[in-house]
Nucleic acid binder design. Structure first.
Length: 515
RNA sequence: GCCGCGUUAGUCUAGUGGUUGAGGACGCCGCCCUCUCAAGGCGGAGAUCACGGGUUCGAAUCCCGUACGCGGUACCA
């Protein structure tokens, strides 16, 4: 009565999919790779989703294929336009451009699921014609009852509506009786087998798929139906997605086949976890791309870090640009075990990118951050680019995230330094601190020109003259000038500050050397 | 419950039967550099390759089982 589900087999080896044969077409046909990223706009772009997007993008670019962005906004309660906008924004920031989708357009649209109801209706119509689908009038309550009666551990469907008389059901539908549409699965289905491009051969018992709901009583498609219809009509060749969809795959394969469509290649990657081994979420701190951006991470660094969470080029390569990712990206090198997100390593990597950056570019970024923090403005930055360049050179090695910047250089942009209590107690109140300040003041007054080299040469003579440890002398001056015991290099800082402000700070600090 | 996936140092990983008494990176520790802090250089500790059986002359690598973790099992996506 119903066609038997076919054995689904891929001819290529699961680990190294051959594109020419990937979909079992004619052996000479090389299809254009088409992949998609389909986020639900129910929140910000999560780093886990970002990695899925990244891998899809890299795969498409590697094969000269098409990267489709589709918005799965079927959940009207939680989906918002703001979220959609934020996701597009995050994707752009990450440098993941899409060829088809919102804004970009394309021949396979619309790219919002809420606008594709015609497509789903059409797919349902074909399934009705081929008898692969039937209406079910069971109420949720009735179902629940039967399920608990069956032992509680069973959530399937008992097919009570499957044998109904077509004339009868047509009438009930006519009268407006609520009903869903269920897929009619073969009675004695064979195992469902597919070659996952990252995991190899996956085999599920045919009984893993029962007569599940395709269309809800309100007429909207369920995820497993909408997703398949979209992937089919958008001619997606490779479905690269999270592990959480692995168990849905057999269902989707059955739908693809019922629809008479080729089954795409599937590639399932595992999820990203927090340090507690649970799925990464806001509970673990920053979890969205936006949050990392706001915390001062570079998009290049985030992309690099995420790319290597569950994927690698070889046993040594750690710094990978987008271009290198595209060049080397292969599905078979995606790891199949879940990865814990380690902020420490991201932090380190961000520093690497900061240090590798063109000096001028870093300077401009720094200026932008200082403007944002209200420490400086564009006119000042434009007026003395060399000064900012020198500052930038001093600061790069000490910057982990962009948010560190204001704290690092703040002392240069204030009229009055506030000496930290701790620093005063530890340094200024030490024996000889006052003398050091007086001597430093006298020396610096005479340095000319007032540059780092000469300042250093002059100050270097002090310890011996004062018969003090050089460390103490310099720390004393540092605290007086910067207010803290840890700062940017002293001599350069003094040069950047200028003579006037430096002397003023020394004067102001002198009284602090006595209790 | 049932189905599926996973398990190499604190973390990310390399590794697909012998050259592995397990390589790289973050983190950690020490030394060097040094005006503080970084950055950089050098060195070090840290993994009985989850556990137990097998197969084999030989296993992190193949097979079976156990434990633990994760996912799915819905008119969520």
């Amino acid at each position: 009565m119903y066609p038997r589900a076919r054995h689904v087999r891929r001819e290529h080896s699961g680990r190294r999919p051959s594109l020419a044969r990937a979909r079992g077409h004619g052996q000479h046909m090389v299809e254009t790779v088409r992949v998609r990223f389909a986020p639900s706009p129910t929140g910000l772009l999560h780093v886990g989703s970002a990695r899925t997007a990244l891998y899809n993008w890299a795969f498409a670019r590697h094969h000269g294929g098409v990267f489709v962005l589709r918005i799965d906004d079927t959940d009207p309660e939680r989906s918002t336009d703001e979220n959609t906008a934020a996701i597009l924004d995050a994707l752009r920031w990450l440098g993941l451009d899409w060829d088809e989708g919102p804004v970009a357009g394309g021949d396979h649209g619309p790219y919002f699921q809420t606008e594709r109801s015609e497509s789903y209706a059409g797919a349902l119509a074909t399934l009705k014609e081929t008898g692969r689908v039937y209406p079910c009038f069971c109420t949720p309550e009735g179902l629940a009852e039967r399920r608990t009666a069956a032992g509680g551990a069973w959530n399937g469907y008992d097919r009570v509506c499957r044998g109904l008389d077509p004339a009868d059901t047509a009438e009930r539908i006519e009268t407006g009786e609520p009903h869903v549409w269920r897929l009619a699965v073969a009675d004695d289905p064979p195992d469902i087998v597919f070659d996952d491009a990252v995991r190899g051969e996956m085999r599920f018992p045919g009984t893993a798929v029962d007569d599940f709901v395709l269309v809800r009583s309100d007429g909207t498609p369920t995820y497993n139906f909408a997703s398949v219809v979209d992937d089919a009509t958008m001619r997606i060749t490779h479905v690269i997605r999270g592990d959480d969809h692995l168990s849905n795959t057999p269902k989707q394969i059955v739908v693809f086949e019922a629809l008479g469509h080729d089954v795409p290649v599937f590639a399932h990657m595992s999820l990203i976890m927090g340090t507690d081994g649970k799925r990464l979420s806001k509970r673990h701190g920053a979890a969205s791309v936006k949050a990392f951006r706001e915390e001062g991470y570079l998009s290049d660094a985030l992309v690099n870090y995420i790319a290597l969470l569950g994927w690698s080029i070889d046993d040594k390569t750690v710094i990978v640009s987008r271009d290198e990712l595209v060049e080397h990206f292969v599905l078979s090198r995606i790891a199949n075990n879940p990865a814990v997100f380690d902020v420490e390593k991201l932090l380190w990597m961000n520093g690497v990118y900061l240090r590798d950056m063109e000096a001028d570019r870093f300077r401009d970024i720094m200026v932008g951050e200082l403007e944002r923090a209200g420490l400086t403005d564009a006119t000042d930055a434009a007026a003395r680019p060399e000064w900012y360049g020198e500052l930038a050179a001093l600061v790069v090695d000490r910057t982990k995230t962009l948010n560190d910047l204001p704290g690092l250089v703040g002392f240069l942009f204030t009229d009055e330094v506030v000496v930290e209590e701790d620093a005063r107690a530890k340094i200024l109140l030490k024996e000889g601190a006052g003398a050091a300040i007086v001597a430093a003041r006298e020396t610096l007054e005479l340095v000319d020109p007032f540059d780092a080299e000469r300042i250093e040469a002059a100050l270097r003579g002090l310890p011996e003259r004062l018969e003090m440890k050089s460390r103490l002398v310099f720390q004393t001056v540092r605290v007086a000038v910067t207010g803290t015991t840890v700062s940017l290099p002293l001599f350069e800082s003094i040069a950047l500050l200028g003579r006037g402000p430096t002397l003023a700070r020394l004067d102001a600090a002198l009284p602090l050397t006595t209790p």
